[in-house]
Write a protein that binds this DNA or RNA. Structure first.
Lengths: 221, 221
DNA sequence: GCGAGATTTGGACAGTCGTCAAGAATTTCT
DNA sequence: AGAAATTCTTGACGACTGTCCAAATCTCGC
């Protein structure tokens, strides 16, 4: 039988593949940092390499393309961003606590991860021009929407209300607030950031108990 | 007196200045179209010149910089975009009519001017990385906010309600819906665009009559 | 219609870009 | 330890960028 030999070869091959994948993610992380710093338009492969411990040639050893590299970096971003409010949802036992923790986390990540967030908006915008980004962008946006919907539906549950809008509407409205707060924050307009922070709890109430209730209150469609 | 002579020279000089400014706006329009087509990251001066009837060298005769040129193009955009709902506000006599006309205009320009809108979001995002764009972007965003607030406050007036959020919150929430509808539209996800269109009237009601009323109902602060 | 000034052209420049390949350096296997 | 395979560096390439400039063309007052 060749089984024993194959498993041995497989082990070797798998270890090599793992190492290969390890370097890929390592370089993807360096790419992510460079993109967050410079934005898509001004990020070059040589600049990415300088933010890693390798030279620029190695990027074409691990990635076929610049597109391949950036796509991988975007996927790295997703892993970081998409579970941001899960602890808030899991750890809250009252509506007031959930609302407070959500608002705090919202503005904490706004300030702490501002470069990463502006990168996301940059890449999402690129997908409006470059079709090859669209698939990944839409998938990440779905996950972000689901993340927000977990907050909204849990808040409705705890407060005894019903969501007032669809999942997608809830997400994009809160995302609009986040984008504006990000722009204000990076522009040093602290007063406006504070105003939005003060107003966000009221918006949350608007989205779950205000006005006519959203017809289909169940999840995605 | 030299007055007669000066007015004559002035006439000549003014005509030349007018001609100069005319070319500037003409080239700024060509720039706007190129940017809307390719996005900021892939727009080059030679590409802009090809979309005009001149050669690439002439751009440095009328503009000092690439930045100067793009800034001028952005200002061109503002003139087009910022009065979009004024007719809707002026021509509506009932809340129902205003709501219907607003939603229709909202999705009409979404589809008709999609390239222009994605350019705006592209440039607004650039300002997150490039400080030199921020001033113009913030000014345009203020005008857009004021434009939306005219709709919201008029709708509140006609419906006998009060705005439920601040001007900035109303604007960014509706803008979030617009961005998402734009992405969905460009991605061919017509069902989602239709869903948002169907939901927008309810969102509008949420923003003026739903939940607790916004404390300071007057204009900008 | 002439001539001075305004306008436009097209090429040259110094950089930077993504991509690639040849060879050095390193790791891994026997 | 030596051989084989891998990983990484370095330099080169053609294409493209923003900028600048000398010369060609055009405009318009006289």
């Amino acid at each position: 039988m060749t089984e024993a030999v194959e498993t041995k070869q497989d082990r070797i091959a798998r270890r090599q593949v793992d190492k290969f994948e390890g370097r890929r993610t390592q370089l993807a992380v360096a790419t992510l940092h460079t993109l967050a710093e410079l934005g898509y338009a001004r990020t070059s492969l040589r600049e990415i390499a300088q933010n890693s411990e390798f030279s620029h040639g190695v990027l074409h050893y691990y990635f076929t393309d610049k597109r391949d590299l950036i796509t991988q970096a975007v996927r790295q971003y997703e892993a970081v961003c998409v579970t941001r409010y899960d602890d808030v949802v899991a750890g809250s036992t009252t509506a007031e606590q959930l609302r407070r923790d959500f608002v705090n986390t919202f503005f904490a990540t706004l300030k702490a991860d501002a470069p990463l967030h502006r990168l996301w908006y940059d890449l999402r915008n690129q997908s409006l021009f470059d079709e090859s980004f669209r698939e990944d962008v839409l998938e990440i946006d779905e996950h972000r929407e689901a993340m927000i919907w977990r907050v909204i539906s849990r808040y409705a549950e705890l407060s005894g209300g019903e969501p007032a809008t669809s999942p997608v509407a809830s997400y994009v409205m809160l995302d609009g607030i986040f984008q504006r707060a990000l722009l204000s924050s990076l522009s040093g307009m602290d007063a406006q950031v504070a105003q939005l922070e003060e107003e966000l709890p009221r918006v949350l109430d608007l989205l779950v108990s205000g006005g006519t209730q959203f017809p289909q209150a169940t999840g995605r469609e």
